[in-house]
Design a binder for these strands. Structure first.
Ligand SMILES: [Zn+2]
Ligand SMILES: [Zn+2]
Length: 202
DNA sequence: TTATTCGGACGCTCAACAAT
DNA sequence: TTGTTGAGCGTCCGAATAAT
């Protein structure tokens, strides 16, 4: 049942990303890019939060499929529909709706989260203490910065699955700029290997 | 076997509300 | 002014179905 169909595809990759709670933290630190957020979920059993892009492209939105921050997004690259890869318009939220009185939370829940760490703050610490990435992000020609759950260029007839997702960092405009990793990496998750590190044939 | 569709669970944003 | 709550709306998982 291992297929590279879209559903399997997206699904499989998603699991690597948003369902990664099943990975061991140690593993994720080296080969397995996991969450970039301090997930409070645990490493056994319950699923952690799903990560969403801020704005899916029209194509992905239409298909209800996972998008990414790059444009064209991975899915559009895969299907060659670059034209459709534009941010989908968002409705304006209703305003003026009355809501009635709020219920106060007793706070037990909140404390419970802190006091009963199903998984000690380990996971959190991992994401918070990740070592700084080296300041030499490269960008592949033709691709915009963003998250890639696998290499976007088809290798042969079908795409080779590249298990570890990675982040395609924006190219540093200049050498001097490259010296400021924070700018270059922007919101790049430190746990994602860089594009050039993922290049096939490595 | 692979591609497409789609219902609905889950997650995020932000205006209304409440406290200070 | 600042913090909290929760409705509204968005993303995308995963299963069903269709096409090849
Ligand atoms: Zn997309
Ligand atoms: Zn797209």
């Amino acid at each position: 049942m291992v297929s590279t169909t879209e559903s399997a595809d997206d699904g499989a990759n998603d699991q690597g990303e948003s369902r990664s709670e099943n990975r061991s933290p140690a593993l994720s630190a080296t080969a397995g890019p996991v969450h970039i957020y301090p997930i409070t979920g645990n490493t056994h059993g319950s699923r952690s939060k799903r990560r969403q892009v801020k704005n899916a492209c029209t194509s992905c939105q239409k298909a209800s499929k996972k998008c990414d921050d790059a444009r064209p997004c991975l899915r559009c690259v895969k299907y060659g529909v670059h034209d459709e890869c534009v941010d989908s318009p968002r409705k304006e939220r209703k305003k003026g709706a009355k809501r009635g009185p709020y219920r106060k939370r007793d706070g037990a829940e909140m404390r419970g989260i802190q006091d009963t760490p199903t998984s000690p703050s380990q996971e959190t610490e991992i994401s918070l203490t990740l070592p700084p990435m080296e300041p030499l992000p490269l960008v592949a020609p033709g691709y915009t910065p963003g998250f890639y759950t696998r290499f976007p260029v088809p290798c042969g007839k079908r795409e080779e699955p590249y298990p570890p997702p990675f982040y395609l960092a924006p190219a540093a405009p200049s050498a001097s700029d490259a010296s400021s990793p924070s700018a270059a990496l922007m919101d790049a998750p430190a746990s994602y290997p860089l594009y050039d590190q993922m290049t096939p044939g490595r």
